[in-house]
């Protein structure tokens, strides 16, 4: 019970911080149909969606989404550059900052999470850690943060170089995070 409450509070802290960093967050029960519906709701009427299959979360969780006709299984370079959304898993989340950690060592995860204007990241509630520094501890998440090539993603890309703060620069203009429990 206590563990459950701690989980709940870290998910809430995570969601609050992510929203503060200009991401949008949805918290879902873990099911293939719910996940598919949530992703498709987020992409709206986009006709081409990039998808890098998961390595941590079960592939089956994404099966219904992956079957959607708009998901490009093996994109050509041209399709990679001209897609509306990119969907990847995140192997960790950070409660204090609302960041998701995306492994970019796997085939295509790096580009899928970077090139499209809308980035969607799916993260498991139990992988949310309290602080960024926790990713560099061997006793947390099996020390994955010490071994992998990954990116802390905190909100969409942004710049203040052109005067006012602008969201959406070279990287995604929007970040939608789906937390699955």
């Amino acid at each position: 019970m206590q563990q459950l409450m701690a989980l709940e509070s870290s998910v809430l802290q995570f969601a609050e911080a992510a929203v503060k960093a200009a991401a949008t967050v949805e918290i879902l029960e873990r099911s293939p149909a719910t996940l598919r519906d949530a992703i498709l709701r987020a992409v709206g009427d986009a006709t081409r969606i990039l998808f890098a299959p998961p390595h941590e979360l079960p592939v089956a969780l994404f099966s219904e989404f992956a079957a959607d006709s708009r998901v490009v299984a093996n994109p050509t370079p041209d399709e990679m550059v001209h897609s509306a959304a990119g969907v990847t898993e995140a192997f960790a989340g950070v409660a204090s900052t609302g960041s998701v950690c995306v492994d970019v060592g796997y085939e295509r995860t790096g580009v899928v999470s970077l090139l499209a204007p809308l980035q969607i990241a799916v993260v498991a509630a139990e992988t949310i850690v309290p602080k960024p520094r926790d990713l560099f501890r061997s006793d947390i998440l099996d020390g994955k943060g010490l071994k992998r090539d990954f990116v802390f993603v905190t909100g969409p890309s942004a710049t203040a170089d052109m005067g006012p703060l602008v969201r959406g620069v070279h990287g995604p203009h929007k970040l939608h995070i789906i937390v699955v429990r």
Partner: peptide, 18 residues
């Protein structure tokens, strides 16, 4: 608290280049 992207990599990356 964090900038949009903080990359932690030990290149060369294993993923194929674009």
């Amino acid at each position: 608290p964090l900038t949009s992207y903080v990359s932690i990599l030990h290149p060369p990356l294993q993923s194929p280049p674009f």
